[in-house]
Amino acid sequence: MGSWNDFNDAQSNTNLIPKGTLAKVRLTIRPGGFDDPSQGWTGGYATRGSTGAVYLNGEFTVTEGQYARRKIFTLIGLYSPKGPDWANMGRSLVRGMLNSARGISDKDMSAEAQAARRINGFADLDGIEFIARIDIGTDTNGDDKNEIRSAVTPDHRDYAQVMGAAPIPPTPAQAPNFASAAHQTANGAQAPAPHGRPSWAD
């Protein structure tokens, strides 16, 4: 037991999940009520900040293992007035989440894999379960906090062990009309980024 005069050997109270930890998480989107149907942002899921940035306010709950029930709060970028980087990072994270949740290799470019990376709307992401790589960032006060910046796909050697049960591929009810999604993509109807207008659903 340590001295009550010297606290240098006391445990640090950061309570952070170590950087690089792999954990199965469930995403809950905290709705912000901002819609822009021209971008495919419907259902009230998106949030528009005071700077004009638009994002999904993500609450990621660890579902099992050592850190079960721990919550990690991370914003998924949809649009930033400063340029396309934030939206591109958001799109990359969502691609990884879909690959992870639906058991798709990131290198798989088959028609089935491409269909599995399409969504009908943000409702398809609300409740999705996938393997996340836990990171550490800083909050608005400059304090350390856990963040999720990437998902782990079946290409990773530890994917199957962490995922446990086999991933559930999307049912026709979850992704009912791939032709429709492709049509919307072709028309640019779901394009959030200001440059190049990539589709969020593709």
Results as ranks from 00 to 15, higher is better:
75 L>C: 04
75 L>Q: 04
75 L>K: 07
76 I>V: 15
76 I>K: 01
76 I>P: 00
77 G>T: 11
77 G>P: 02
78 L>T: 02
78 L>V: 12
79 Y>A: 03
80 S>G: 00
80 S>T: 02
81 P>C: 08
81 P>A: 06
83 G>D: 08
84 P>Y: 05
84 P>T: 07
85 D>F: 05
86 W>G: 00
87 A>N: 08
88 N>S: 09
90 G>S: 12
91 R>L: 12
92 S>H: 13
92 S>C: 10
93 L>C: 13
93 L>R: 05
93 L>H: 07
94 V>M: 06
95 R>A: 10
95 R>I: 05
95 R>C: 06
96 G>A: 09
97 M>I: 11
100 S>C: 12
100 S>G: 11
101 A>K: 00
102 R>V: 08
103 G>Y: 01
103 G>I: 06
103 G>A: 06
103 G>F: 02
103 G>D: 02
104 I>E: 03
105 S>P: 04
106 D>H: 13
107 K>W: 12
107 K>E: 12
108 D>I: 06
108 D>R: 06
109 M>Q: 14
109 M>R: 14
112 E>L: 13
113 A>Y: 08
113 A>E: 08
115 A>G: 14
115 A>R: 15
116 A>Y: 08
117 R>N: 14
117 R>T: 08
119 I>H: 02
120 N>T: 13
120 N>H: 15
120 N>W: 09
120 N>E: 14
121 G>P: 05
